[in-house]
């Protein structure tokens, strides 16, 4: 074993958790390498030194604080429990969102036509009631317009039902 291999083996050796074969290899290396021997000895000392850092005791109200926070739980966990075991509901919701996003992304290409068609139709109806109706030129002009967008208008009518 060389010094590099000690990086993977020294800690387990010092913890007394190395397998016999591994332990013998480490011991053989330590016997011949002063630097690693020194490091191993200092690692042992270090373990004792690190024990000096003590954590303070828990504050007396700790358990009560946990209980208070847990007691606030049931309502919330009950709400989520209703949703979580229902993957179908989550799937249906996701599908609905995806579908509506998809529809709104494809509709803009048709929308202007539909709006134009509705606008023309309304214009025509308004004009229909006006005395100008008697003017044949105007009537024929708007008559033509009302027929032209008739096809896109039917397309747009079916759209909101999707």
């Amino acid at each position: 074993m060389n010094c590099q291999r000690m990086e993977k083996n020294l800690i387990a050796y010092l913890d007394g958790k190395a397998a016999a074969a591994e332990r013998h290899k480490v011991e053989a290396h330590l016997a011949e390498c002063g630097e690693c021997r020194e490091r191993a000895e200092q690692f042992r000392l270090l373990s004792g030194v690190l024990d000096e850092w003590q954590a303070p005791p828990l504050s007396p109200g700790f358990d009560a604080a946990v209980r208070v926070r847990v007691a606030q739980e049931p309502a919330r966990s009950g709400f989520w429990a209703w949703l979580l075991p229902s993957p179908r509901a989550a799937f249906a919701l996701t599908a609905l969102v995806v579908l509506s996003v998809w529809l709104s992304s494809i509709s803009p290409s048709r929308a202007p036509q539909a709006v134009a068609a509705q606008g023309a139709e309304a214009d025509f109806k308004m004009i229909e009631d006006l005395p100008v109706l008697e003017d044949y030129d105007v009537l024929s002009n708007f008559d033509a317009l009302s027929y032209l967008p008739a096809q896109p208008a039917t397309q747009s009518e079916s759209h909101p039902r999707l």
């Binding site: 490091r39 200092q42 690692f43 042992r44 000392l45 270090l46 373990s47 004792g48 030194v49 690190l50 024990d51 000096e52």
Partner: peptide, 23 residues
């Protein structure tokens, strides 16, 4: 840590070290 805490590893006045793992 061995390098950073070298001054503490010199032995001698270590009040709580005795309970540690060193022999």
């Amino acid at each position: 840590l061995r390098v950073q805490l070298a001054p503490l590893l010199q032995g001698g006045e270590t009040p709580a070290t005795s309970q540690g793992r060193e022999k």
